[in-house]
């Protein structure tokens, strides 16, 4: 990120910190310098810009039309999921309600619940007709997986990262030798929280719900996306029955790695017929590498 003020500030007024070298150890806002004992103008405005971006991420409405268009136009998706995305909303009528009533963001509105159930019945009908046409027996009634996309607390995250992660994930699923995945149409939910994926999964009759959702924006990560998986999704499912992949963004967990983790967890979930604490993520990724950081027992402060 570029600094608003790159030239040295007036030295007679601003005292630069003499420990700039410590910035190598942390991304915390250390060595800001001071004017008197207050934060210098440049550093103050850098902070304000980061906060403004975080606020915008929470309050800017998800551009559903654009996202929908991108999903429909995606070459790699159209081969696998032929039905266009379903567009629905939660019981939270707007952002104000959403922020104050998390319970409403966890459920589909009555009309949308019905809309998804109707859609499922319609697809089921079509499948049966096709199967009869082909002279096959009645097929599976369940989908393996329903992919859900919800704005959550950062529409920015969803707008940027949902499509690339879905494309990579669907590519992996369609090339999966171990299992032939049947995928429900993608559902886009506005004013949604994590649990709204349970409603979608239940309506569409899916074995697993995978919801991509905007995470609570941090000051330096306004666009962090999370993924939650729930086996046998049903309204009222417990949070302990979910698995989570978090901090998905290029500067955090990159797309390819997120898709890899999601594919791993989905495959394990299908094998074990569960999600939650019984399903451990044993795929090796960036996070683990960070945890393995040095065995040092002392810091630079002790010379």
């Amino acid at each position: 990120m570029s600094k608003l003020v790159s030239k040295p500030q007036d030295e007679s007024v601003v005292t630069e910190s003499r420990w700039q070298s410590l910035k190598q150890f942390t991304s915390a806002r250390i060595a800001l310098g001071r004017t008197g004992t207050s934060i210098p103008t440049g550093e103050l405005l850098d902070f304000q810009l980061d906060h403004a971006r975080a606020i915008d991420a929470v309050h800017r409405a998800l551009d559903v039309a654009t996202l929908n268009q991108q999903l429909v136009a995606s070459h790699s998706l159209s081969h696998v999921i032929t039905t266009p995305p379903l567009l629905v909303q939660s019981k939270a009528s707007d952002r104000m309600v959403y922020l104050q009533r998390p319970d409403l963001g966890r459920q589909l509105s009555e009309a949308c619940w019905q809309q998804l159930c109707d859609a499922r019945a319609e697809y089921h009908h079509q499948e049966q007709r096709q199967e009869q046409h082909k002279g096959q027996h009645q097929g599976q009634q369940e989908y393996d997986l329903a992919i859900v996309v919800a704005d959550g607390l950062s529409s920015t995250a969803i707008q940027k990262h949902a499509l690339p992660v879905i494309e990579r994930l669907v590519e992996k699923l369609s090339g999966d030798d171990a299992h032939t995945w049947s995928l429900a149409p993608i559902t886009i939910v506005t004013q949604g929280r994590v649990a709204v994926g349970d409603d979608v999964g239940e309506c569409l009759n899916a074995k697993i719900t995978l919801i991509m959702i905007g995470e609570r924006p941090g000051l330096t990560s306004p666009d962090s996306m999370g993924i939650y998986l729930t086996w046998a999704p049903k309204r009222g499912a417990k949070d302990s029955s979910r698995n989570c992949i978090s901090n998905i963004r290029p500067e955090g967990l990159p797309y390819e790695e997120a898709a890899h983790k999601a594919h791993y967890l989905l495959s394990e979930s299908m094998k074990l017929q569960l999600t939650g604490i019984g399903l451990k993520d044993r795929s090796v990724g960036l996070e683990e590498e960070a945890q393995l950081e040095s065995d040092a027992t002392s810091s630079f402060l002790i010379g």
Partner: peptide, 15 residues
């Protein structure tokens, strides 16, 4: 510090 880096923690203590 997000990964409990000792030097990262020490840098902030210093600050």
């Amino acid at each position: 510090h997000p990964t409990d880096s000792l030097d990262g923690i020490a840098a902030t203590i210093f600050d």
